[in-house]
Design a protein around this nucleic acid. Structure first.
Ligand code: MN
Ligand code: MN
Ligand code: MN
Ligand code: MN
Lengths: 226, 226
DNA sequence: ACCTAAATTTAGGCAAGCCTAAAAATGGGC
DNA sequence: GCCCATTTTTAGGCTTGCCTAAATTTAGGT
C-alpha cells in the first residue's frame, strides 16, 4: 500500500485540514519539513493514484478522499496506540514517546496493532490526551476547548497537551500538568499577558505565556465532583 | 548510520559467513532475494564507506570488519529480542514472530532495545533457541550439534530450530518440539532415510526427513536429570 | 482593474536501491 | 596448462523521494 512518505503526507493533510478542509502546499511543506516543490510533486502523485488518496486542484490545495482519510486515521491510530504502549508497558516518559512512535507507526502490522490495543484494554486516549481512532475510523469524542479561552475565576480539567516539544512536556510534567488534572485560572494579565493559574491542589501560582497556554486544551470539570 | 538495505546486507554476510569467513556474491543475492549485480554494487559501497563495513576483493567475496560485525550483531540482537518480546508480551505464536521482527529490527531505538531487554529479564535465547547477542557484542554460548548427527538409542534436548519457515514451525509445535524438550532417537533408517524419534513423554514415534531434521539442533541432556 | 508580493508549479538534478543484458574473470576438469 | 561453464562485474536504466532555481499563477491592496 502506501509508502512511508505517502503515509506521512496523508497524516499531515489530516492534521492540518481535518476531514474535509483543504491543506495548502506551504502548510504541508512546513509540517513535513520538505520543500514546497516536493509537496507539489507528492500531491500530484497522490491525486493520480488509483484509487486516489486526495482531491487536488493546482494552486488550491489538497483534500482527503475517503480512502485518504481512512489511511491517515490508520496511521494516527498506530501512533497513539504505540505512544500509550511505550508509556504504560515500557515505562517511557511522556516526552519520549512521540519520537519513537513516529518511526514505529510505519513499521507495525495490523496484528501488532490489535495486540497492543488488547493489552492496553482498547484505550480511547493517548498519554497526551489525544483521541485514538478506532479500527472503524471513528474518533472517541471529548468536548474540549482552548485554555486560552478559559474564564478567569473558574476551574477546569486538562484535556490534552501538544506532544511535539519534549522540553515543553518535561516542563508541564514538572509542574504537574497532565490530562485529567484540575486547574484553576486566577486571572489573565492584560495585553495578551500570561495566564495565572494553580495546578491541582498545589498552592503555587504559575504564569503561562501564549506559547505554553496555546498548546493545552481543557474541558469542564466533571459535574458531580463533590 | 546504516540504511535498512545496508543493515540487511551486513546481517546476511554474518549469517552466511560468520565472524571471519567471506560471503559470496551469489550467496548474498539468494539470501537477500536481489540480483547478483545489485549485491556487487552494495558490496562496493560497503567497502568504500568511511570507516568501511566490510573488506571486499572483486571476485572473492566480502568479510565483515569489526565495525561491520558490531552492526550485524546489533541488528540480530534487535531481531531476537523483538521475537521474544512478541511471543512473551504480545502473545504471538512462534511462527508469527519472525516476519514482524524482520521489519521492526530496523525501526526501534536503543532505548526500545534496552527497555524490552529489561522487561524480559535480559534474556539469552529467543523463542527458537537462538542466542541473543549481548550489547557488548558477545554471544551466549550453548554447545549444540546437528540432530542429523545424533547417536541412535540416545536422548538429547532440543537446542534450537530454524525460524524461517512458519509452516515448519507450526508442524514442530503440533508435535511438541521446541527448545528445551527432550527427544529420544530410536533409529536412523537406511540410505539417508528418516530419523525415527519420540518427543518428550509421548508414546508416538515421528519420522523426520532430511529437511526437517536439518533445521534442528540438539544438546546433551543436562547430566543430573534424576 | 492593475500591480506586486507571496504562493505554487515547472524544470532539471541527484542519491539510494533495485533491475536486465552483456562483458569479463574465475577456477575445476582434463 | 587450457578451456569452458559458472560466477561476478560492468553498463545502462528505472522508480521514489527529495533538492534548488526559475517561471508562473494567484490574491490582496489600492
Ligand atoms: Mn505523538
Ligand atoms: Mn511518521
Ligand atoms: Mn531485516
Ligand atoms: Mn529466531
Amino acid at each position: 500500500m502506501g509508502s512511508e512518505a505517502i503515509d506521512n503526507c496523508l497524516k499531515a493533510i489530516y492534521q492540518l485540514a481535518g476531514d474535509d478542509e483543504r491543506a495548502t502546499t506551504a502548510g504541508l511543506a512546513e509540517q513535513l519539513a520538505i520543500s514546497p516543490a516536493s509537496v507539489t510533486g507528492m500531491l500530484k502523485k497522490l491525486s493520480e493514484a488509483d484509487p486516489p488518496w486526495i482531491e487536488y486542484q493546482k494552486h488550491h490545495g489538497a483534500r482527503l478522499t475517503d480512502r485518504g482519510r481512512a489511511r491517515a486515521l490508520e496511521i494516527i491510530r498506530h501512533h497513539r496506540l504505540i505512544e500509550l504502549f511505550l508509556h504504560r508497558v515500557l515505562d517511557y516518559s511522556w516526552d519520549e514517546v512521540h519520537v519513537e512512535a513516529e518511526k514505529l507507526e510505519h513499521a507495525i502490522s495490523e496484528t501488532f496493532e490489535d495486540r497492543i490495543a488488547h493489552v492496553l484494554g482498547d484505550p480511547e486516549f493517548d498519554p497526551h490526551g489525544h483521541p485514538i481512532p478506532r479500527r472503524d475510523g471513528t474518533l472517541p469524542d471529548r468536548a474540549d476547548s482552548d485554555l486560552i479561552d478559559m474564564e478567569p475565576g473558574t476551574d477546569a480539567e486538562v484535556s490534552r497537551v501538544s506532544d511535539h516539544d519534549p522540553t515543553m512536556l518535561q516542563h508541564l510534567s514538572s509542574i504537574g500538568v497532565r490530562p485529567g488534572v484540575r486547574i484553576h485560572l486566577l486571572e489573565r494579565r492584560p495585553f495578551d499577558g500570561p495566564l495565572m493559574l494553580r495546578v491541582g491542589d498545589e498552592q503555587a501560582v504559575h504564569a503561562f505565556g501564549a506559547r505554553l497556554a496555546g498548546s493545552i486544551r481543557i474541558r469542564d470539570i466533571r459535574s458531580a465532583a463533590t
